[in-house]
Structure formats: C-alpha cells, structure tokens
C-alpha cells in the first residue's frame, strides 16, 4: 500500500484534509493509505522510518516555527529521493523558487483560497501520484544521474538528448535534455560505460539513441530532438548506421 502522510497543526484543517484524502482513496479504490495525520514534524518522521516512497502533504508553518515544513521536507528528500511532496501554505509563507530548488515539490496548495479549490487540488495530487505509480510499474523508469558537490541530481533518461564537452571548459560535461540544460564536472567516458543507450558519436559528444530524429549518413551529421545537430566522426558513422538499422 502506498503511504500518504499529512502534517497540519490546526486541528480543524487537519480533520478536513484527512477526510478529503480518505474519501479520495475510498471512492477511487486506490491502493493507498493515509498512514498518519500528524500535528508536528516528529509525528511524520516516526511513521516514515521504514518507508521507501510516499506522498506527503505538509503545512509550512507549524506553531511558531515558520520553516518547519521546509525543514521536514529536506529530511524527507534526503531519506526518500523520489517522495512526492505537496506544500499546504498561505501565500506569504511561500518562498516559491527556494522550495523549487531545494525540494522540487509536486505541488503547492494555497490555504487562502476557497475550501472547494483546496479539495480539488488535494484530489488532483493524489490521482497524479497514482498515475505516476502506474507509469513507473509499466516500465521501470530509467534515471540519468549526476553529482555536483555532495548533491545528487537526476533526469529521466527519456528526457536526455545529449551530453557534450567543449574545449573551453575541460573536465566539464554539458547535459542537454528536454527543457533542461546544465553543466557539471565529469567526463564522457564514464557515462558512456554506465548508460548503454548513450552513443559516442564524436570525441566531444554522447547522444541518446532514442532521441535521434534524423541521420545524414552522407554528411555524417545526426539531428537530435530540439533540432540539435551533431557531427559524427568517420570512425563512428558506420557503427551508428548499423545501430539505427537494427532498431
């Protein structure tokens, strides 16, 4: 059973959210359960000890502490990297971009809107999570991971378009993905070994074979998603051709 956790210090609101969550599970017959409706962070932490996943609805401000929800979310992220986190908060407590960078939550639910809107949001978040679970079960989603300092970042493999290096910045890999571009220290060789669907088409580029939209064998030029063009070295052109034919 997929666990759901709720943190809210206001007793009336907590009862209300609890009711919405339980009803949603019941009506849709989801394979989920509300593990705990806690009034403080300790209540959530004690119940999530032996869990590997979960959907968390967290109130940002608990009692006097205005960042309690964020602190708890950081702990949850560290323990369960793939947990779904939803913040329930008033508008002025919200540091939107900060949360996005630190926690990357599934959603935000603003308290200062009608009760009905809040309910709809909670229902939507539960069903979105359910959809994700189904999708994950259908085909185990592959993740492309990289490290920056002590932090681990991940991008779904299906989003990755290419990895490249430039002469201007040796020792630095540029990741281009759908809706994302970033750079981090590393080298292409290690990624080439680690991920089989990444193809070394040139000494400075690794491309995702699933994201090739066109390959010009004559001019040895491959076109990837988002119209990114990449040259293919003479040595690799035949291999790439063979690989693409066999697909």
């Amino acid at each position: 059973m997929f666990p759901i956790y709720l943190l809210e210090d206001n007793a009336v609101q907590r009862k209300e959210y609890e009711r919405i969550i339980n009803n949603t599970i019941l009506i849709n017959e989801y394979d989920m359960t509300l593990v705990v409706a806690a009034e403080d962070t300790a209540g959530v932490l004690s119940k999530m000890a032996n869990s590997e996943e979960g959907l968390f609805f967290l109130d940002m401000e608990i009692g006097e502490e205005s960042q309690a929800g964020l602190k708890l979310a950081s702990k949850i992220r560290a323990a369960l990297p793939f947990a779904q986190i939803v913040f329930i908060t008033t508008h002025d407590e919200l540091s939107f971009l900060t949360l996005e960078r630190r926690i990357s939550p599934l959603d935000y639910i603003l308290k200062d809107q009608p009760a009905d809107a809040i309910m709809q949001k909670i229902i939507k978040d539960i069903s979105v999570t359910q959809e994700m679970l189904k999708a994950d079960a259908a085909r185990h989603q592959e993740i492309f991971g990289y490290k920056l300092g002590k932090r681990f970042f991940s991008v779904p493999m299906k989003d990755v378009i290419m990895l490249s290096t430039t002469k201007e910045r040796p020792g630095c890999v540029i990741l281009t993905a759908t809706n994302r571009q970033t750079d981090f220290p590393g080298n292409l060789n290690s990624f080439e070994k680690k991920y089989s669907q990444l193809f070394r088409c040139d000494k400075s580029a690794l491309i995702n074979l699933d994201r090739i939209s066109n390959y010009d064998y004559q001019n040895r030029k491959v076109t990837l998603a988002a119209d990114i063009e990449c040259p293919v070295s003479f040595r690799k052109s035949r291999e790439l051709n063979r690989l693409l034919k066999n697909r």
């Binding site: 971009l97 920056l148 300092g149 002590k150 490249s164 430039t166 281009t176 571009q181």
Partner: peptide, 26 residues
C-alpha cells in the same frame, strides 16, 4: 550543502526560443 545557488525565474511563452538557448551550449 556545500554550494550556493542563485536562481532567477520568469514566465515564458511559445515565442521564447528554447531550442536556441539550449543549442548555444553545444
């Protein structure tokens, strides 16, 4: 952790040429 982050965020629409932004990296 051991890093500082400065993020700037704004709304975009379809005229925002994402491809070009991404392309320049390569």
């Amino acid at each position: 952790d051991d890093m500082l982050e400065i993020s700037v965020r704004n709304a975009i629409d379809s005229t925002f040429n994402q491809q070009q932004i991404f392309k320049t990296g390569y």
